[in-house]
Structure formats: structure tokens, C-alpha cells
Design a protein around this nucleic acid. Structure first.
Lengths: 218, 218
DNA sequence: CGCACTTTTGAACGCTATCAATGCGTGTGG
DNA sequence: CCACACGCATTGATAGCGTTCAAAAGTGCG
């Protein structure tokens, strides 16, 4: 099976909304964001992907790429034609199952984010976002102590469903609580001194609107 | 490949959180809800599935079922062992690709819901929910004029990220706007006189917090 | 009929959006 | 080199939407 290895710079586009779906991309190095053009004509953050994630599943069902995918940093991705991957997977069950597992992971993550949006107030939502980002880096053996987020406040807010002002305020409050600290290098570089404390903060702020009674009527 | 055909009554459980992942379920008739036990010990609506949807993808990545899946109504599901499905898919590419397409659809839907939570106010969120539900029924050639939602206000609110009081108020406002109307049979039966009007309402209320400037810096 | 659960509606509070002004960092041209 | 402009980030004041607390009405079932 032939992977095409591509090196990318920040801003390079991996796929474009509207083009026919042919390839999947496995991210090896760096980070990629998916941008979706909403019906209202606005750009929306559709997803964030880093090392080990696949990009392109959005075209599987319709045959057309649904979103732009743009490198956020100097990156390396492996592109593979879906049909080739499919053919190979027929002979290599492990590959097929690994692909399924990757898709399952992505579904789970997407669902968890939906739940986070539904249950967390602004501060906790940002904290949860930063925590997951740090954890994702850690799992991949990347340095997770000093983190650089190559996103504007507007993009973060768009992803988290809050205004850029609220993002900024939440950052300030998290700093005030010493749950994060900004680097000298600018307001996009920060550190998480105590991940456990950050997690505890998220948990403590989690509220369930309309808790479902355990005593199920159905 | 052997599907096991199962008939279910409201409240019957298809899978249980924590049990080892072995089977996927294809819903043929009826509707199923997925319930997740959150870290705070609360029950959360994880997903809603109807005819044509697969249930069980949540176990793909970890090997363990993440949520309970419970029939909301008299239903029929086809259960299939994942490993058997996998073996069969090696011989039948169409099956493999259909499965991928189904997973892609589910991912897209999950992402769309996340965006809806991020951009729609309460009334529009409920309207969008009802609209999608009606459309899902219509696509499957089920009657979509008079709809029965076998969910409590608390469950709807939990799914949409709002309190049950707000759900109730939003229902009332949608009725006042004549975008929906309650049936005589109770407050869980309703009709959508004009789907287009409902869609227009959702669109009109859609606001993008922190719009991303089209002029991308990256 | 009475009880438990669900739904509706009201009033007050709090969180987040909105509008607005200021500060910061970078690149450009005088 | 500095002034300036531009985009991004921060912070403040105010308003609005949704939550919270509370009470009452509707629904289903033994």
C-alpha cells in the first residue's frame, strides 16, 4: 500500500470542501484544523487533529469532502487513497480493525465534546479543552509542560461555543486561579503546572442540566 | 454472515456499559437511546438512533461498551458479532464500505450536533432537534407529520444541554409561533405543519460566537 | 381515589453576549 | 529608527438569555 508522504507548512491545505473524496490523511507530525463553511456563510471550527489522527472521514458517507483541512504548523501527513486502503484492508484484517478503532476513537471524542458543551460553563470548558490538548500531546510523547496553541481566541471560542471575549476572560481567570500560567513568549504559550488540579476544577464545575433520574420509567 | 434478529420492547437493553464489546446492532424498526454514566455519577443522553443506524461503535476503540443502549419503543434490531462482520467484510468490499459510510454519517451527525450546541440559542436548538427528528423519519419513509417523542423533557434537555424548564418553555414558544402544534393525545405527540418554516426559524436564530475572519492569518 | 411522576409557568439571580475602549505585537513605509 | 497601521488580546459596563428555586396543574397507574 502506497502512502504518499507530504510535508506541510502552516496554512497549507490538505483537503478542500467540495472536492471529491479520494484520500484519507494520517497525521504524523504537527497539527491540523478542519474548517467548515456554515450555512450562514461563516467559517466554523469543525475539528482539531494531531499526530496519530486521521483526517478525511467527513467524506466517507457522501463522497465529497465536507470541510477544509489546514495545517496549523509545520507538519507531516501520510496520504493514502481510500480505495487502495480499502483493498489492502481486505487482505490485512489488522489494518481494517485499526482503522475502525481510529474511527471509533474519533466518534467517542466528538461525543465527549458535545457532552462538555452541554454540561460545562465557560471557564471549565476552556480548562477541559486545554487539559485534553495537553493530554493528547503527552500520550504521543510530546512535551506537554509548555504548550503552544496556534489558534486565535476567536478560533478557540468558535470551537468551544463562546465569544472571544469570554475566552479571554476565562484565560485570565484560570491564570488567577494558578491553574495555568502564561509563558513570557506571548499569550499563546502557556504551561499547566498541575494537570490534576485542572481536572479537579473541571469536575467541580460540571453541572448536569436536567439530570436523568436513575429510576428509568422506560 | 449471521445476523441475530431480536425483537425488543420499550426499556429492553441492547448493550450495557462496561461489558466487553462483541456485537454491533443495526436498528431495523423502532428507536434506541444510548445512556452514558458521567464521571459525576449522572446519567447522560449519549445518542439517539433509529432505523438504519448502527449501535455499538463506542466499543470499537477500547473493546469495552461505553454506554447502555435501551430501546425506546417496540423495536427490532439485527445483532452481528463484530469479528464475524469483519471476516465477512474481507470478502465483501461493499459491506466494508457501507459500514465505513455508516460510521462517517454518524461522525458527521455528531459533529453537526456539536456545532448546533455551539451556535443555537435554546429555542432554535429544540427546533433543530425536532426538525432533524422529523427529517430522519421522513428519509426512512415513516410518517413524519405526527411525531411521537418517547423522551421526557429532562432527557431532551440533557441531550440539548439545557434544563427541563427551558425545554418546556421553548416548546411553548414554538407552539405560540405556530411552528409546531401539540396533538390532543398528550404533550409528547406533536406535528410540524411547515418544515420549511421551522428550518427558516433555526437559520434566523443561528449566531456564530467569535466568527472566524475569512481572511485567515495562518 | 390517591400517589408518583411529568410538565408547565412564574420570579429572581447569574452567566455570557454585546458594545466599546484600551493595550500589545508585528510588519511596513517614511 | 521611529511612526503608524493592522490584527489580536484584554478589560469594563450593560443587557439579555437561561438557570435556579418554587409552586401548581396535568397525566398515568395501582
Amino acid at each position: 500500500m502506497s502512502f504518499e508522504r507530504r510535508r506541510l507548512h502552516a496554512g497549507d491545505r490538505i483537503q478542500m470542501a467540495g472536492e471529491p473524496f479520494r484520500r484519507l490523511h494520517l497525521i504524523r507530525v504537527g497539527a491540523v484544523k478542519s474548517i467548515l463553511l456554515s450555512s450562514a456563510g461563516n467559517l466554523q471550527m469543525a475539528g482539531l487533529h494531531i499526530q496519530g489522527d486521521w483526517v478525511g472521514f467527513d467524506g466517507l458517507s457522501t463522497g465529497v469532502c465536507a470541510c477544509d483541512a489546514i495545517a496549523m504548523d509545520t507538519s507531516e501527513v501520510w496520504a493514502v487513497h481510500y480505495l487502495v486502503l480499502q483493498k489492502t484492508a481486505e487482505r490485512v484484517p489488522e489494518l481494517s480493525m485499526a482503522l475502525h478503532a481510529a474511527m471509533g476513537r474519533q466518534m467517542t471524542r466528538e461525543r465527549d465534546w458535545r457532552l462538555a458543551l452541554a454540561t460545562l460553563p465557560a471557564d471549565a470548558r476552556l480548562a477541559d479543552f486545554l487539559r485534553h490538548w495537553a493530554q493528547a500531546l503527552e500520550v504521543r510523547d510530546l512535551r506537554s509542560d509548555h504548550i503552544t496553541l496556534r489558534l486565535t481566541r476567536a478560533e478557540i471560542g468558535n470551537y468551544l461555543g463562546m465569544t472571544l471575549e469570554t475566552v479571554s476572560r476565562s484565560f485570565s481567570r484560570l491564570v488567577a486561579l494558578a491553574l495555568i500560567s502564561f509563558d513570557d513568549k506571548g499569550r499563546r504559550h502557556f504551561a499547566i503546572p498541575d494537570v490534576a488540579a485542572l481536572s479537579a476544577f473541571v469536575e467541580s464545575k460540571s453541572v448536569t442540566p436536567s439530570p436523568i433520574p436513575v429510576r428509568q420509567r422506560c
